[in-house]
């Protein structure tokens, strides 16, 4: 018996082409509709990426170019317009988010989550030193709250509750979504969570 050992070394960020190639991603969502909170969820996920990575906006635009997304995802104004579909923003458009926009944003968030996975994992791990993780959480939640105050409509009860919430339950939920959106199966998983079946 001839024996060969092939160790697969699938590194972070390398397997981007999988997203376009996988069979699951190509399945149709013909009998589905976009969930009402999809725009809100996507905008908040981008906000978390901005919290975790300094200069994340530039990184997002660069990544959008690299994965072959259209111009509107690497242009500041156009990208901001898409993000304004979140009704909780200070300035929001009344135009609903489209299927193509959801698809592109999911692709973008998924690839960004892949590179940020080690950081996300650290925040969610219970095996990290408690004091150190508490400090990380304070830093993370403070920065995210300041971004929320900057961008979101504070007159909204939901936003004011979020800013004053000390349990950070929603922020943890967002990190869980980002963690599960990373990796080769993350794209289809995140996309499925943003739709309802009719």
């Amino acid at each position: 018996m001839i024996s060969t050992n092939l160790v697969s070394s699938i590194r972070l960020g390398v397997n981007e082409n999988l997203y376009s190639e996988n069979a699951y991603a190509n399945k149709t969502y013909s009998n589905c509709q976009i969930a009402k909170d999809a725009a809100k969820k996507l905008d908040f996920l981008i906000l978390v990426i901005e919290t975790l990575q300094i200069n994340a906006t530039d990184a997002l635009f660069l990544r959008a170019k690299n994965i072959g997304l259209p111009f509107e995802y690497s242009s500041r104004v156009e990208f901001w317009k898409i993000r304004c579909t979140n009704p909780l923003r200070k300035a929001h458009t009344f135009v609903p988010i489209t299927n193509n926009q959801v698809d592109a944003l999911v692709k973008l968030i998924s690839t960004m989550a892949e590179s940020l996975y080690p950081l996300i994992r650290q925040l969610l791990s219970s095996k990290e030193p408690e004091g150190l993780n508490d400090e990380r959480w304070v830093l993370f939640s403070t920065r995210l709250k300041s971004l929320i105050k900057d961008r979101m409509n504070l007159k909204r009860c939901y936003i004011s509750t979020l800013v004053n919430d000390k349990s950070n339950a929603f922020f943890r939920e967002l990190l869980v979504i980002l963690a599960l959106a990373s990796g080769p199966g993350g794209y289809s998983r995140l996309k499925a969570s943003l739709y309802y079946q009719n």
Binding site: L6, S8, I10, N15, L18, N22, Y117, R121, Q122, L124, S125, S126, K127, V176, A179, L180, S182, G183, P184, G185, G186
Partner: peptide, 21 residues
């Protein structure tokens, strides 16, 4: 499993099921 271990396991199995080899 805590959250991070669950995610590691999920990613491991995801890589396997999408592995073209």
């Amino acid at each position: 499993l805590d959250d991070s271990e669950l995610f590691d396991l999920t990613r491991c199995l995801d890589i396997l099921r999408y592995d073209q080899q």
